[in-house]
């Protein structure tokens, strides 16, 4: 079952979710690691190239996921509390928004001088805005957003665990596997 239903996510949504989770953690770790590398480290150049390439691809997957989300039903909230459901929705919207802001700020660092971003020698994303000290401002925003996103991701994961272990509902389970719809008699 590829598509979402009212009660469960489909395989496409599940795959997109975990692919992006992996990429977000990977980019965060790679980002922290690469900014402290010394000039003579063999990874000094490649780490940044990898970070930019994965970042651009993640932005594309982000777009795909948003489209998929809009074209599919969203499984209903299982908390039974309107406040909790609203909170969860707000957190999800914020996750998307922060990722988008991270893509934009990262893009603005590397393209501040008119250079394009090379994606794995495959294609390149051209520069658009170039301003005075743009790379510094965008860099600051990018770093703060990265920490902010990871904090929000932690909250997101804790909330999922709370659903699983405290509320004992299927919120986490249905993001891991497709749950067959209960057959109505």
């Amino acid at each position: 079952m590829l598509r979402n239903t009212d009660s469960s996510y489909g395989w496409a949504a599940i795959a997109l979710h975990w692919l992006m989770a992996l990429a977000v953690f990977g980019l965060f770790g790679l980002g922290l690691y690469m900014v402290d590398l010394t000039y003579y480290d063999p990874w000094y150049r490649d780490s940044l190239a990898l970070h930019k390439s994965i970042g651009v691809l993640l932005a594309l997957v982000w777009t795909l996921r948003l489209l998929w989300r809009l074209l599919n039903p969203t499984p209903r909230d299982l908390s039974g509390s309107r406040v909790q459901a609203l909170g969860a929705h707000a957190a999800h919207v914020l996750l998307y928004a922060m990722m988008l802001a991270l893509f934009v700020s990262g893009y603005l660092i590397s393209t501040a001088d008119g250079r394009a971003i090379e994606v794995f020698n495959w294609f390149s994303v051209p520069s658009t805005l170039t301003g005075d000290n743009q790379e510094d401002l965008a860099g600051m925003v990018h770093e703060w957003l990265a920490w902010g996103l990871i904090a929000l991701v932690a909250l997101h994961a804790l909330a999922a665990l709370k659903h699983h272990f405290v509320d004992r509902d299927a919120t986490l389970k249905r993001m891991i596997t497709v749950i067959k719809q209960e057959q109505k008699p």
Binding site: I109, D113, Q134, D136
Partner: peptide, 16 residues
């Protein structure tokens, strides 16, 4: 000092 310009934004950011 922030006006350093080596014609490469990523490098200039590092230099600052």
């Amino acid at each position: 000092t922030a006006s350093i310009d080596s014609n490469h934004a990523e490098r200039d950011k590092h230099l600052r």
